[in-house]
Design a protein around this nucleic acid. Structure first.
Lengths: 250, 250
DNA sequence: GTCTGATCTTGGTCAGACCAGTATGCTAAC
DNA sequence: GTTAGCATACTGGTCTGACCAAGATCAGAC
């Protein structure tokens, strides 16, 4: 009695969701397809329209389907925003997870740069070149600089031509931009950092151009390690001249 | 009559969802908290109950909230299953994504093993030891063997003591178990694989014991590469003696 | 003090209705 | 014959009000 999985014992929402999931997974519903109307779906499955809407809304947040006002519901290509939403919520409730996410970010990027070495094309190189130049131009600006930094790293991931890696990386973007920005705020504190930021990114770029996965990975990893070191030094109070900067943004 | 169209431009579902998201992200709604009833929420936000249910259902599939029948809606700790669902759907519609996910898996695990070298404790070592032994014991069984293989790799990630990495890794678990299993089916085809499976995992284990991140990463990476190679060879028809095995499971 | 049952509340669901635009087809004008 | 125009049948978006089943609660009986 407790498990009525046998028949169509599922009730309401589950029934509709299962019905749609089945078609989706089986492939009889492919991206671009238009679902039958909510009303039809309701009568077809013997449930009310609000229930159907619940199921459709569920699929919407999963990025599988898109409800278009007055048009209909269409199957979409799986979207990134789901992971984005999830991480946003998940991290909001566990702030200590930020350091953890950084680790995941390192993981993603190091793998991405390996793939980038193999798969990057001219367009990717150009994008990397552009973003690299941007880093040099915005070296003295916290916001723009942080953005440029992020764009460069994103370009690496994009160059991996891996949808999954890109998705994972961008889903952490929101959290990472902050770290990029705060790193830039340290530039004024550590003059040496200016060199580090420019040269290091340049070195990373070179490894991709050279298509040397091992060296790319190692260089990128070192890049992160040095960044950590700077941040650590800042935390322990190695800064004196720009204490206003750091305190202001915290 | 149309109250609040002016203020909160969002309509219906968006309004409720935004309202809840705000509280969730701000932290005023923490895991374990019970939300106000659907009816109250409806009147509070000036929408109908079905709309509120849509929003709650959306949060449910995101694993942020749990609707308990006749009890209420409570905030839960973000769950991995969302990612699982997502990948399942995403994969069904883009089969080529599997290879992509494998790359992400490699990324996660290689980062995890590095952390594991630093952070693994006695309990982690014991778990690794246990799962390693299991691999040897179940070397001739496809199902149990695949499971043991997976458990070992999971133990590595767990030993990294990184929540995020663990979450990401297990979210791909559903897909990976299949790959683990199919790999095991190749054991009969390639006698040499038996050695590969046992010795290679042993080597990986040793690197963690030695707390040598670089070697661990490299060894694990090579492990995956060899696995890929076996799979590639199987695909191109390098198997002759056990064609029944492979055709049966496909 | 404990047990029991009525009542309140909660989620789960339904039916029917209205609105606002879209899509379509049919008519009427050119 | 072609096309401009409009009526109509859709679609999603939403609301109202209602009923059910079962957990939660508390008053009253024992």
């Amino acid at each position: 009695m407790e498990l009525k999985r046998a028949a169509e014992g599922e009730k309401g929402f589950e029934k509709v969701f299962a019905f749609l999931r089945e078609r989706l997974l089986a492939g009889s519903l492919k991206p671009g397809d238009r679902l039958i109307s909510e009303r039809e779906l309701a009568t077809l499955l013997g449930v009310s329209r609000p229930i159907v809407r619940e199921a459709l809304r569920a699929l919407t947040v999963l990025g599988i389907v898109e409800i278009r006002d007055r048009i209909g519901t269409v199957v979409t290509r799986p979207d990134v925003s789901v992971l984005n939403d999830f991480f946003t919520f998940a991290l909001a409730q566990q702030a200590d997870m930020l350091d953890d996410v950084m680790q995941a970010r390192v993981a993603i990027e190091c793998q991405a740069i390996r793939l980038a070495c193999e798969r990057a094309n001219i367009a990717d190189f150009e994008r990397l070149q552009r973003t690299l130049a941007k880093i040099g131009e915005t070296i003295d600006e916290a916001d723009a600089g942080g953005m440029a930094d992020f764009e460069f790293h994103r370009a690496i991931v994009v160059a991996s031509h891996s949808e999954t890696l890109t998705v994972l990386h961008s889903s952490m973007a929101g959290l990472l931009t902050h770290s990029h920005r705060s790193r830039r705020e340290l530039v004024q504190a550590f003059p040496s950092m200016k060199t580090y930021l420019i040269d290091d990114h340049r070195r990373i770029f070179d490894t991709i151009i050279a298509r040397d996965p091992e060296r790319a990975d190692a260089t990128l990893r070192k890049h992160f390690a040095i960044g950590d070191e700077y941040r650590r030094r800042a935390v322990v109070g190695d800064i004196d001249k720009t204490s206003d900067k750091t305190s202001a943004s915290r």
